[in-house]
Design a protein around this nucleic acid. Structure first.
Length: 337
DNA sequence: TAGGCCATCTGGTCCT
DNA sequence: AGGACCAGATGGCCTA
């Protein structure tokens, strides 16, 4: 979750840089040239190396009265030097502030890119963002899973696909992904028993990047996340290996060696190609979902490759509110038995 | 309260 | 010289 910018006045009370501005271009605009820098140093309580400017200052101050003019009177070099020293230090501070602003800007750019990445991985929620690391892991899994599909030229089932996506992800993220991809409990349980009821559905909706189209969102429905205690663990890797005939990048990595204790998966049982907002697990496990049909729109990322056929926008169960409630009842029955 | 996540500051390094 | 990039440090916020 990206936190909102907070008031920077605590850090730099007298500068124009303020975290109220969401982008550093604003900060940079408000940076003033050294003329009137605040006395307060930027380094808040940190032990820092003394700058070269400070070194120079000491040397030059010691040097103030070494030379006299032709009349034997001390020159007024001291004042001039002190002034130039002050200007130099102001300059240093200014450049530090500029560098800070650039760094913030850079990090914001990085975060923007990460946000864009969040939107194209198969799990997206405005209210509950994936963490940075989880976003990268999911993206990596997603790319790898898609690559495997291309390489093998074979349709994996939805269950396997979701399992692959969730490799190495934390349990909350796994829950989120599973919820977004609507791997419902029944399919999950059947999958464990070796059945493939989910094959009756086309799995390919999950292969399409879940483009987000707020303006086309259909009315939200409801879903419920069950407590993870009610779910059984599932061995991702064994299922993965059996399908892909190759080693999972996660399973083969040292990080995943050793006894696997895959996270129990919660499923909300409601399908969504894209979940806009509403995954608010922390509050009350009831959330609305926006189903986003995604017609071709805009040049970015809307290539025909990923365009869903009009008649197959929702190859899986698409449950609107009333339907989801029914589905939810079924799921509750499954979970609570 | 501990731990996770995050934004920001900072100094160092490399490159242009 | 100045900017980009990086990693460490720090403190705030949130949640279990």
């Amino acid at each position: 979750m990206l936190t909102l910018p907070f008031d920077e006045s605590v850090v730099m009370p007298e500068t124009q840089m303020c975290r109220k501005f969401s982008r550093e271009t604003e900060d940079l605009k408000h940076l003033k040239k050294p003329e009137g820098f605040p006395k307060q140093m930027l380094h808040q309580g940190k032990s820092i190396k003394r700058s070269s400017a400070e070194d120079t200052e000491k040397e030059e101050v010691e040097d103030d009265h070494e030379e006299d003019d032709e009349n034997g009177l001390p020159r007024r070099r001291g004042l001039r030097k002190k002034k130039s020293i002050k200007m130099r230090m102001d300059r240093v501070k200014f450049r530090r502030q500029e560098a800070n602003a650039r760094e913030r800007n850079r990090m914001h750019g990085l975060n923007d890119a990460l946000d864009n990445l969040r939107k194209v991985v198969p799990c997206y929620s405005k209210t509950q963002k994936l963490s940075k690391i989880e976003t990268l892991r999911l993206a990596k899994n997603y790319i790898w899973a898609l690559s495997e599909i291309l390489r093998i030229g074979k349709r994996p089932d939805l269950l396997t696909f979701v399992q692959n996506l969730c490799k190495g992800l934390s349990q909350p993220t796994t829950n989120l992904v599973a919820g977004c991809l609507q791997l419902n409990a029944r399919s999950f349980l059947m999958g464990q028993a070796g059945e493939t009821a989910h094959h009756a559905r086309s799995p390919y909706s999950t292969f399409y990047p879940p483009y987000h189209s707020p303006e086309l969102s259909t009315p939200p429905g409801h879903g419920t996340l069950e407590n993870s205690k009610s779910m059984k663990p599932y061995n991702y890797c064994s299922a993965y290996e059996s399908f892909y005939e190759s080693t999972s990048p996660e399973c083969s990595s040292p990080q995943f060696e050793g006894p696997l204790s895959p996270p129990p998966i919660n499923y909300n049982g409601i399908f969504s190609l894209k979940q806009e907002d509403a995954l608010d697990y922390g509050k009350n496990y009831n959330y609305g979902m926006h189903y986003c049909a995604v017609p071709p729109r805009g040049p970015l990322g809307q290539s025909s490759v990923f365009r869903l056929p009009t008649e197959s926008h929702f190859p899986y169960d698409l449950h609107l509110r009333s339907q989801s409630l029914t589905m939810q009842d079924e799921l509750n029955a499954v979970f609570h038995n």
